[in-house]
């Protein structure tokens, strides 16, 4: 032990003011060292600035879209909310309204959600409660991969491969349930490339996000609740009904809202799949037309004159507000349970 103390002796003697080269003199007592304080201040400001930048970005999106939209809205000859078509060909005589666009956006997104929600619920339950433990992770990864496929590829697949494949279903629905307004004849000459087709493609595209959020919340079901149910002799399904579903319902709804948000804003797949129509939107799934996003994308190559461009930006502003509300609601519903 004396050897050990000898080892330390030199370093102890020079921990006074006269340090060996390379070692900064230790601060006198416990007084502050300005450089360390300055580093702290700089670093803290930089990271806080990054956070503020995100807030500023959202504000800037709203403000800049508004600045660009207002002159066009003032020059608009038609009622923005109720006019069914979007005529921007003549800058001196703008007449645009979002009625049809809003309807097509809502019909396609809600239809997608109606298709995706039960599947997502089943998949989430399968992954958390049914799949063999060793396979649950790889299976979940497979579902996540659905989100990795670019939307333009879904669009191509949707119109060229899926649309012909589901055409018989569309024809059957139209022929047998045509008396329901949803399946009545639409404003397109064919039953392919309709809101119906687009909705199916959108359902596939939003499935991973709805599933991921739902799965995550289901997996957080407190163990004691599950064990309490099991101790009562519950079957697997009864455990789900007694513990998992009550706990995870808000997460499921929140995940579905996030999925709805995605569907509302999906651009290129919708642009490729859903055909434009010259006649106004009825209330059928076999109608065609533009959503907010596909309308803007369709006109993107002609953004040159400010007033017509502003008309499309005003449509973008409505889409921004719409998705903002849907996402904010999703977060409110989920409370602290969901990250994403």
């Amino acid at each position: 032990m004396s050897e050990r103390i000898d080892q330390r002796a030199p370093s102890e003697t020079d921990s006074g003011p006269a340090s060996s080269p390379g070692v900064p003199a230790p601060p006198p007592g416990t007084r502050r060292r300005p450089s360390s304080r300055r580093g702290e201040t700089i670093f803290r400001s930089l990271t806080t600035g990054s956070g503020v930048l995100v807030v500023a970005a959202i504000a800037a999106i709203g403000v800049f879209l508004l600045i660009q939209a207002v002159p066009s809205l003032l020059a608009n000859q038609a009622d923005f909310l109720t006019f069914p078509s979007f005529n921007t060909g003549d800058p001196d005589n703008l007449a645009f309204g979002i009625r049809d666009i809003f309807l097509v956006t809502m019909f396609s997104s809600v239809f997608a959600l109606v298709l995706a929600m039960p599947i997502a619920l089943g998949v989430a339950l399968f992954l958390t409660n049914y799949a063999p433990r060793a396979l649950a992770r790889p299976f979940a990864y497979i579902v996540d991969l659905l989100a990795a496929v670019p939307s333009i590829i879904y669009g191509l697949w949707g119109i060229l491969v899926l649309a012909p494949a589901i055409l018989p279903i569309a024809e059957w629905l139209n022929a047998n349930l045509g008396w329901i307004f949803l399946f009545a004849d639409g404003n397109l000459p064919v039953l392919s490339g309709t809101i119906f087709t687009g909705g199916v493609v959108l359902a596939v595209m939003i499935l991973p996000i709805v599933t991921a959020v739902t799965r995550e919340v289901f997996a957080q079901t407190p163990r004691f609740q599950i064990e309490a149910a099991k101790a009562l002799g519950a079957t697997r399904w009864e455990v789900i009904k007694m513990a998992t579903l009550p706990y995870g319902r808000s997460g499921y709804i929140a995940g579905s809202m996030l999925g709805l948000g995605r569907a509302l804003g999906e651009t290129i797949a919708v642009l490729i799949v859903i055909r434009a129509s010259t006649s106004p939107m009825g209330f059928s799934l076999f109608d065609g037309g533009y959503t907010f996003a596909s309308l803007i994308a369709s006109a993107a190559s002609e953004f040159s004159q400010p007033l017509p461009t502003g008309a499309y930006i005003s449509a973008g502003l409505v889409l921004f507000v719409l998705t903002f509300i849907v996402n904010a609601l999703a977060r409110l519903i989920a409370g602290g349970k969901v990250n994403g």
Binding site: R262, G265, T267, A300, L319, R331
Partner: peptide, 21 residues
């Protein structure tokens, strides 16, 4: 909260914002 909102901003809106600004 805004990070969540940004996550939900459609890509076409992000593109329009850059175009406008």
């Amino acid at each position: 909260f805004m990070v969540d909102i940004l996550a939900g901003v459609p890509s076409i809106v992000a593109a329009l914002f850059i175009f406008a600004a």
